[in-house]
Design a protein around this nucleic acid. Sequence first.
RNA 1: GGUCCCGUAGCUCAGCUGGAUAGAGCGGCGGACUUCUAAUCCGCAGGUCGUAGGUUCGAGCCCUACCGGGAUCACCA
Length: 656
Amino acid sequence: MRPHKLLPMNIIERIQHGVVDAVKTLYGADITPESITMNSTRKEFEGDYTVVVFPYAKVARKKPEQIGEEVGAQLVEQVAEISGYNVIKGFLNLSVSDDFWVQFLDRIAGQDNYGRQAPNGQKVMVEFSSPNTNKPLHLGHIRNILLGWSTAQILEAAGYEVVKVQVVNDRGIAICKSMLAWQRFGEGATPASTGTKGDHFVGEYYVRFEQEFQKEYDAWQASTAGQQALQQFLADEKAVKKAEKALAEARKKAKNEAARQGETYTEEAHTLERYFFKNIYKNTYFNEYSELGQAAKAMLLKWEAGDEEVMQLWKQMNAWVYEGFDETYDKLGVSFDKLYFESDTYLLGRDAVKQGLEKGVFYEKEDGSVWIDLTDAKLDHKLVLRKDGTSVYITQDIGTAQERYKDFGVDKMVYVVADEQDYHFQVLFETLRRLGAPYADGLFHLSYGMVDLPTGKMKSREGTVVDADDLIAEVVAEAKNNAEERDTLSDLNAEAQQEIMRQVGLAALKFFIIKVQPQKRMTFDPKESVDMQGQTGPYVQNAYVRIQSVLRKAGEQDLSAASAYKKLETAERDLIAQLYAFPALIAEAAEAYDPSSVANFSYDLAKSYHRFYHDYSILNAETKAAKAFRIKLSKAVAHSLKLALELLGIEVPSRM
RNA sequence: GGUCCCGUAGCUCAGCUGGAUAGAGCGGCGGACUUCUAAUCCGCAGGUCGUAGGUUCGAGCCCUACCGGGAUCACCA
């Protein structure tokens, strides 16, 4: 056996350097290691890694096949870990020695933290969830929360110190609507008195407000004032033309939608009059005529003035909501290091604007409003302070970013926010950059696509929004059905069973959502989300559970015989190679802020293990060495499966 | 109209900095449990990678145009 010393470079880098040397000595050409195209060898060919040698045909002035032969021969000679090669067309397939893999497995077998990088001294903040406090969490929040949590875990594994935060949108007209409705129609009811979860309780009053407002608005539309508003609009040719264009598009969409759903499309639902009242005039009505609108606005003013009664009501309602949110977060298994409340931060940022104005980052218009000119960054002019000196959304975000930097001194900030705010974050980041924020280069908007249902978009107005709590209950119930059919847990007490079903059900839901790349819009089919077979969370958990079962049966084992195992099966090499690639994959996932790649990795690893498990016996392996080796390998696979799922926020049961 | 994102099998999705015959799962069909958990495994069927050009030894991936879906272009948040 060739002595193997631990080398600083990994096998991939060693191959690359070997190729650089070979090309230099054989053909006298200089290439860089990064320029080499290297892949894992495809299953149908022999080998572990493949180097593409087409690009060297020019400098070598030889056929790709010949280059492959020459480089391959030299690599076997020069790189100790390469045991053989074969060439097909321009592809040089390299085999890594079994020795190397066996020793690698031996090395990681003792590492409790394999896959996790040492701290890199950098600190990153991840903001996610950030709900409004006027209604409960829904499916969209779940995607956000899972992405945020998972990204935070991945960054931590990659060596960052991570601070998880959210901005709670606890103020504004929305919560005032809930407050007002409760005041008028609540008759002193509480979550406790009605047996309702706090966030749902408050959400009901928000809905109630909207219903009452709609009633009021409908009546007004028929009134003289309403008809006058309509006539006035109809007289404005330009406005009508514009509306008709938009209306035509809306009709087209509605028709397509109806056709897709097999429903009938009615023209009456899309008249110009309806369009006017629904899409053009509603805000004006709310702000200028609506009694309820006036009352809600008055309440907001009182809140801003610190009116005691309003403040008390506000605190009460938000407290109910937080109680509900906490329950949902608990069920999802997520937590935060710090909460920022909009009621505290909404006035921030004005000082920053003043300083920026002095530095010339912003400019003032004649009316006193303050703007930033981002046209040279291919963006537009953007208002940062109204003429009356009050702030807008982005002002607050500028202030909040600075506040956070003061609080934690982070190097990076990741905002997990849906892609409808892409433009906002471009503007925000560019503005912070110009203000000279030291963390400017570390700003990242983790933008994700909306979640659609098989029936189309979620629309709160049409009641098609999928509630987070309902969804969680559903997947856990489905896990329970599955478990009962299987009857593998009947010797456990009810509590232990329930815990496993919770873990399995949530695994199905979480994996289903995280496996899709963030930037893609995703279709959420409730039926598929509770699937537990195939490419699912429970499938990955099951691989782990099978290993635990084997390990239980194996009992305490002396695994030293494993090093005598000399000839690896293909399935075993596959598994070890995947384990080998794991740390780099985590690093890439962290760099790209992409949890979906970790989900895919976990699935691939589980799949390889399931196949291995099916094809080879572990406890009844042909030799002592094979048995010890396979137990060792299984343990290492279990460790990486567990870590991978942990990075996705998925727990692993030891039975299921 | 300007800008951005997406378009891969019936459905849901992978496809790493361009590399071999484009891969999984679900659904369909057919097999494998007296043997370590069958929430598993194996086989079959299923594709003009939205369309048309271009760059390249080589394009699902890069460039251009177009088509389809979505978002955004507020002194809303």
